Simulated scan of single mutants.
Amino acid sequence: MKTISRLEQANDNAAAFWLAQARAHGWQQLVTPRFTAVRCARTPDDAHRIVITRPYGATEPLEDELAALLRDWSTVRLTLEDPYGRLDMTRYGYGHGRAMAVMVREPGPVEPPLLGALPGSGARGGGRLTVDETFDADEFAEVEHAIVEGFPIEAHQPWKRGVMLPGELLWEQGFRAWLGRIDGAPAGACLTYDDGQATGVYWVATLPDHRSRGVARAVLETALAAADPERPATLVATLLGEPLYLKLGFTEHGRTHWWSVPTPPAPAAS
């Protein structure tokens, strides 16, 4: 049996996470030995997703293959994750932003957080913090709303229920959703996906009114404590999220470059 690296496990989990969304939405998908592609189609200009899952040799043949697929799919917007950082899609008109850390926490148990009364008082202090897994459509809609507004995900603002995360995702094996509340009101959320090899963590978010109160940490620790302790946990860290993930035992295993179709400039005001 071939052993794969932690980075490859993280790549595979990300690909499986997007394939689960493809099934829930009814989207076209393509799985190849080197990448997985999902033709997201909530709207005509929705961002298609490609995850490079395995190391590659010469870059030009892969770049040509990806460009041909994107032409065939009439791609207008794109998120292409390249965790090996060697692709150059500029000749096809694509650009890329900041590279982000692919992080892994080695297998092992996680102590659930101590929840309950928060310190302080007033508008942004005090209150009772709880974190629960969501199992029904109404609670899952609260998770979706917290992610869209808290991450934030501008492409899905203003938030519309079920557009980004349809309730059918709750029926996907390995897919779990977590919601943090303060005094019963949604405060933060995250998603996890167990593909049988690793538990991926996605979209850890805190609503603006509840930031810097330990919500993200409590949500993440609760999700990790409920995961299979014999599997690694994987995620792609935003710059703001890295310090928290390091404290929870995650280490960097690579940096992924996210390629996208540049947004055309807005027309000049007349």
Rank of each mutant, 00 (worst) to 15 (best):
M1D: 09
S5A: 12
R6K: 10
L7F: 12
L7K: 14
E8W: 04
Q9Y: 02
N13R: 05
A15I: 03
A16C: 12
L19N: 10
A20P: 05
A20E: 09
A20K: 11
G26N: 06
Q28L: 12
L30K: 09
V31F: 02
F35S: 04
C40L: 13
C40T: 14
P44R: 13
I50H: 00
I50K: 03
T53A: 05
P55L: 06
Y56D: 02
A58G: 07
P61S: 11
P61W: 14
L62W: 06
A67M: 03
L69V: 01
L70E: 02
L70H: 03
S74I: 00
R77S: 14
R77M: 12
L78T: 05
D82N: 04
P83K: 04
Y84L: 07
Y84K: 04
R86D: 07
M89G: 01
H96G: 10
H96C: 15
A99R: 13
V104S: 13
R105N: 07
R105Y: 04
G108D: 13
E111S: 13
G116K: 11
G122F: 10
A123Q: 12
L129R: 10
T130Y: 00
V131H: 10
D132H: 12
T134F: 05
T134E: 02
F135A: 09
A141W: 04
H145Y: 12
I147C: 14
I147T: 13
G150V: 14
A155I: 08
P158A: 12
W159F: 15
M164L: 15
M164E: 15
P166Y: 01
L169G: 01
W178F: 14
L179G: 09
G180T: 09
P186I: 14
C190R: 01
T192W: 03
D194P: 01
G196P: 05
A198P: 00
G200W: 04
A205M: 01
A205W: 01
T206E: 03
H210P: 07
V215S: 08
R217N: 05
V219M: 05
L220S: 02
T222L: 01
A227S: 15
P232H: 07
A237E: 07
E242R: 07
Y245M: 00
L246E: 10
G249P: 03
G249C: 05
E252L: 02
G254W: 11
H257L: 14
W259H: 07
S260R: 09
P262D: 10
T263S: 14
P265G: 07
A266V: 08
A266W: 00
A266K: 09
P267M: 04
P267A: 15
A268H: 00
A269V: 11
S270N: 07
